[in-house]
Amino acid sequence: MNGENLAKARELLRHFPHESSALIPILHLVEQEFEYIPDAEVHVIADLMGITAAYVESVLTFYSLFHRQPTGKYLIQVCRGLSCQLMGADELSSFLYEGLGVQRNGTTPDGMFTVEAVECVALCKNAPAVQINLEFYPNMTREKLEAFLDKAREEVPTDA
């Protein structure tokens, strides 16, 4: 963790009535900084909290928002919940898989995009729903996704 996050992590240890509650918030800090949870950080957290790395690992692997492999700059999560499936979610995910040349949960070689098919994200009335870096994109269409991808690519110079 960088210095700022380490300081935040130390604060989190005192934020809850019991220190144990800080584990998941600290994992969120790490996931945010690295876009996944690197092995080395599992040990940093274990030392910080005085617990074993195996325990940290057992907790983090229970939760699907923590990644053990690097993810892209943009984490695109297509909801495949039933309401979204009924409204054409499959077409959205195939479009992304084909257009970006990735498989489910895959990341593009340039590290820009990760595409996941996730369970209901509680935006069923705006199906099909997508989350990008955990922001809601309601009533998604192929066109809107295309526009998003174009814009994201423009913002980052290709040699980056």
Binding site: S83, E119, C120, A122, C124
Partner: peptide, 11 residues
Amino acid sequence: DESEPGTCKDQ
């Protein structure tokens, strides 16, 4: 935690 598929009221 609202995660029941089809439910988006708490959200």
